[in-house]
């Protein structure tokens, strides 16, 4: 189901109406090149929202705007009523698409960093997941394989009891077995009090966990719909995506 680009709106029917994330007429341009055009999104708690689109569609740009890594050209982003800043960062747990870990540090150094700065970080949960992955905390990050680095980044993110988890391409660049682990970790650590915004272009892998989907292309939202509504039409989210963005 396509929606008018000027009225792109997704209101997730969560348990309560207080929005965790609001984007109001959000635009971002680099010079004369628009990257996001007039996005209006509201996400309440208790939802897993998939931000789906091809490469270069604006998914990462939105995520960076939410996390204060970019500033909007116009419009605003609000997280629990706050603009991106110190207060919003206390409630957002962000998994970056880039591997930003310092290779010279040990895993335990990152754990201590998260423990010191995030009140909602659960050291117990972190060490449990680390043990299941058979990664020793004293391991130097630079010696970990790519897959294990992705997993460490993910479990750092999911060890926080945040209100909003923002996961940028959490399963990109890892093998299928690692993808299943990542998705299972997301589901197991997610609570109805929080929401997850997950961006990916590997839709068939993630659609089983999605409550809502937002299709984006060329900086515009082309569809904002509950996943069940799509499935009620006899299609999977992946099928609809392929039909929508067929070359």
């Amino acid at each position: 189901m396509m929606q008018n680009n000027n009225e792109n709106f997704l209101h997730s029917a969560g348990i309560e109406n207080a929005p965790l994330l609001e984007c109001r007429n959000l635009c971002k341009s680099y010079g004369a090149v628009p990257v996001l055009y007039n996005w209006n999104i509201t996400i309440t708690k208790g939802r897993v929202v998939g931000l789906l689109g091809p490469n270069g569609s604006g998914k990462t740009t939105l995520i960076k705007l939410i996390n204060g890594l970019l500033t909007p050209t116009s419009g605003e982003v609000l997280i629990c009523g706050n603009s991106p800043g110190v207060e919003s960062k206390k409630v957002i747990s962000y998994l970056t698409d880039k591997d930003a870990l310092d290779s010279s540090m040990k895993v335990v150094d990152m754990i201590n960093l998260y423990n010191d700065f995030f009140e909602d970080f659960s050291e117990v949960r972190m060490y449990e997941m680390l043990k299941r992955l058979d990664i020793h905390p004293e391991t130097k990050i630079g010696t970990l394989s790519k897959g294990n680095r992705e997993k460490v980044r993910l479990i750092l993110t999911m060890s926080r009891e945040a209100k909003l988890y923002v996961l940028d391409e959490p399963i990109g660049g890892v093998d299928p077995a690692a993808r299943d682990y990542i998705l299972d970790t997301i589901i197991k650590n997610y609570t109805p009090e929080s929401s997850i915004l997950l961006s990916t272009h590997l839709i068939s892998d993630v659609e089983r966990i999605l409550d809502d989907v937002i299709f984006v292309s060329n900086g515009q939202i082309t569809l904002a719909e509950a996943a069940d509504n799509i499935r009620a039409q006899g299609k999977s989210v992946d099928q609809l995506f392929r039909e929508t963005y067929r070359f």
Binding site: N67, G68, L69, V86, E87, K89, K90, Y94, T96, K98, A100, L101, D102, L113, F117, F118
Partner: peptide, 9 residues
């Protein structure tokens, strides 16, 4: 590493 830096509150 700015991604980590600016994630901190």
């Amino acid at each position: 590493q700015a991604y980590i830096t600016y994630t901190l509150p």
